[in-house]
Design a protein around this nucleic acid. Structure first.
Lengths: 331, 331
DNA sequence: GCACGATGCCCAAACGATTGGGCAGTTCGA
DNA sequence: TCGAACTGCCCAATCGTTTGGGCATCGTGC
């Protein structure tokens, strides 16, 4: 079914059909009489005509394709954000490509080029590195993009207010009477890690607390990272902390494993708080306190921001509010 | 950068450029002299020419786009399969759309139509329902597709050998001395659930065991489903089983929660075995025995099969071998 | 010296949609 | 009654590639 055969069915010119089908129901202004318009719409529906996006974007220079690059979709956090993206993109008639970069700069580049070769209208990066060279370069080339989940100063991003999240945890642990704490800080190239950690430590000091130099341990975001970091904390800290803040639920779960194997009771000998409140947190044998960030909402927001960028508006970064859920692991 | 400007740069006709750039390095047979060919390739690289996929697929009627529909990408199992898909698709120059259908037939339809409107070359369904009407319909319309993860008789699929997986669990639990068992069976519309369950029960009976009617409980695939199912099993079974087989790790985790809240020790008062061996299984406080299925491999296989279908070959369904990992929850 | 097959290119017509610019015919105001 | 403005539509170019079909030129065999 093409415009041409549809038009010839109706005894009308393709251009007329095109105009009618684009005018929205409010009126094909000057393109056709309202009865012709109705005939066209009816026939289009009846024959199941859908415009060929390849053909139309060849002419219009817009593909309605958005590229999404994330570290890995098997990370629940990113998968949920992507659900938000898919939803919002569909609402505005866009389709999305997702690719995994595994947080590797070469892959980021490669996948970006693949996306650009596909002529995406714009990109959403969920894997921005604070020290990366890719983004400034793309901005220089005039490629439209926004960041999601992680921010980088100078570029528009949709994130959780991670600093605030860290503060919430500090307030909670302080109020619960803890005075010796340690942080499993995540990867230093990710703003999520840096902001959550700095939000926590800054507030902790504000409250009058002290955090020793080896009380902040950088690590992977996964269970293995959490395990190793917790091990390190137990080994190196002069006074054993009574509470752990892991900037990621999976790292928290890994840490809980380490505690267990050292014979320490989670929530009793040591409080643990995670971040993101993934669906697992509440389901653990000892339910994990965690900061919930509005993951789908972040994804949706990223899409809206990117649409604004594509419309030529300039956009402000958005930080969405997190909420702390206190559970047995720190109660 | 278009073919035309590239050609005029070189003082040569666009068609010549096109032919050279498609001929592969082995020789532009009759299209140009080998030195012209080299000049063309050099200039193309230098100017960073990439062909416009919209334009080319307009002409060739092939988009090199594959559509992937899954219940939800936030399900780790599907996310990992998708990683395999992405990898394999990239290797053959295809790009992939993913969409979530939430296991809802209306959504499946809607997303399928969106994909077809985008003119994908073929589809991979990760959300097939045994009793669905969509697939036969699509087959009738001549839409090329393959199934992944779940199978439906009559259509080509790449799955784990779920029956075999169920048998492995039956063998293990029987050998460990269990005689009263129950199954948290998952959703009856999914072949994964049905096959794992039937593999288990058939082998169990083969071994001389007996499973009462209320020993098989259908449920959701998530923790909530597992929790409810376990609750039901504890309530209704005349003799309390000593082992539980959940066809999904998340359901198993939910079940473990229920056992705990009933004061039952996992692995001591009751053995639990899950399925898929998601990365969490080994990390739980009481590590979960689970059947590992080769998730990425399933994704890759689905892509290969779809490519064969697109090439007009007819393909056989593939069942990949699972492996049981025994851990503390059933040792 | 001529037919013939390579070789090395160019021409032009698609593919399906969009869009600026027409051009008749009608309506309306003066 | 005439010009202007509007209505309702058609024409044709265009987006960037691909591809069947040329058409010279050159070398070769006889």
């Amino acid at each position: 079914m093409t415009l041409k055969v549809l038009a010839s069915q109706l005894g009308v010119h393709p251009s007329t059909v095109s105009r009618v089908l684009h005018a929205g129901p409010r009126g094909a202004r000057g393109a056709a009489s309202s009865e012709t318009a109705q005939r066209i719409r009816d026939m289009a529906r009846q024959l199941g005509y859908t415009p060929d996006p390849q053909a139309s974007s060849l002419r219009t220079r817009r593909t309605h394709l958005l590229g999404v690059i994330v570290p890995r979709l098997s990370d629940l956090v990113l998968a949920l954000m992507y659900e938000g993206i898919e939803e919002a993109a569909a609402l505005s008639g866009h389709s999305t490509f997702v690719m995994n970069s595994h947080d590797d700069e070469r892959e980021q580049r490669r996948k970006t080029e693949v996306m650009l070769a596909r002529r995406v209208d714009g990109l959403i990066f969920g894997d921005a590195h604070l020290d990366g060279r890719l983004l400034p370069e793309l901005a220089g080339r005039g490629v439209p993009f926004v960041l999601m989940n992680r921010r980088v100063p100078g570029f528009p991003s949709a994130t959780c207010d991670d600093v605030r999240g860290g503060e919430l945890v500090a307030d909670h642990l302080w109020a619960a009477g803890h005075r010796d704490v340690a942080v499993i800080a995540g990867e230093p190239f990710a703003s999520t890690a840096v902001d959550r950690t700095s939000g926590f430590t800054a507030r902790w000091r504000e409250l009058g607390g002290h955090i020793p130099a080896d009380g902040v341990v950088w690590s992977g975001f996964d269970t293995a990272g959490g395990r190793e970091a917790a091990e390190k904390i137990l080994q190196t800290n002069a006074t054993r902390p009574t509470a752990l803040f892991a900037v990621n639920d999976f790292a928290a779960i890994g840490a809980m494993g380490t505690l267990r194997s050292h014979g320490l009771g989670v929530g009793q000998d040591m409080a643990v708080v995670g971040f993101n409140d993934t669906s697992l947190a509440a389901e653990l044998p000892i339910p994990l306190s965690s900061v919930r960030s509005p993951l789908q909402e972040i994804g949706r927001t990223a899409v809206h921001m990117l649409r604004e960028v594509l419309d030529g508006q300039d956009v402000e970064s958005v930080r969405l509010e997190p909420t702390l859920f206190v559970r047995e692991s720190s109660a």
